[in-house]
């Protein structure tokens, strides 16, 4: 529930290098600890088990980093955004680094659903001749196989520039196509079509942009 006395600070950060291997839970804990180290006046929930009022954006798969990740932090006192950013930077490792902080409205959508459209950039071990986008992808969800139509999730074309592939996926309220699953199937289809050798694999995988629908 929005408490009008609190200040809602949206912090954008990079998750890079080896820290792309963190799970969402590990990432969340690391960010909370950085906030504590930064000494910001974070709000604490009332009740049985008091905890920091912080909300995280859409989760990244393990192994996928990001340059435009964000979280919302609720503060009890106003701290000028550049000052808050500097304190967070001081308290953060280089691979989990805050790059922007700004205050947003309480009525703005929650961090987890604010930006359902994500653009990813994958750098492959070598440049494919072209990429083959599969039409359907079968995923296992809650032990059940489910077939997803790629067209339902893919926004715009899959762009190939040398060894770099760029694509945009939209999350639906009913579910989403995981970027790592999509990339895996993309590689499989591309290799199967003879457009790249079987050794083709990502060397870097980043979410580079998140935006509203």
């Amino acid at each position: 529930m929005a408490d009008p006395r609190l200040f809602r600070l949206r912090v954008t950060f990079r998750e890079t290098g080896r820290l792309a291997m963190l799970s969402h839970l590990e990432l969340a804990r690391a960010l909370e600890r950085a906030v504590r180290r930064a000494g910001l006046p974070y709000a604490v929930s009332q009740g049985f088990s008091p905890h920091m009022r912080i909300a995280f954006g859409a989760a990244l798969p393990v192994g996928v980093g990001g340059t435009a990740e964000f979280f919302d932090l609720f503060l009890t006192d106003y701290v000028a955004a550049p000052k808050a950013l500097a304190a967070l930077q001081e308290a953060s490792p280089a691979d989990l680094y805050p790059v922007e902080a700004r205050y947003i409205e309480h009525k703005d959508p929650a961090a987890s659903v604010a930006c359902p459209v994500s653009t990813y950039e994958v750098v492959f071990s070598e440049a494919p001749v072209s990429v083959v986008v599969p039409e359907e992808i079968t995923v296992v969800r809650k032990k059940k196989e489910k077939t997803l139509a790629v067209a339902d999730f893919l926004v715009g074309p899959v762009e190939l520039d040398g060894a770099t592939v760029r694509f945009t996926l939209a999350a639906k309220p009913t579910g989403s196509l995981r970027a790592d699953a999509f990339a895996r199937e993309l590689v499989a289809a591309t290799v199967a079509a003879g457009c790249a050798p079987a050794t083709l694999h990502p060397t870097s995988f980043m979410r580079v942009e998140q935006r509203e629908a």
């Binding site: 290098g17 080896r18 291997m21 590990e26 690391a30 192994g63 691979d95």
Partner: peptide, 11 residues
């Protein structure tokens, strides 16, 4: 499992 075990780079 849990690749974060092997990463180093902690605070």
């Amino acid at each position: 499992e849990r690749p974060a075990r092997y990463l180093n780079h902690e605070w």
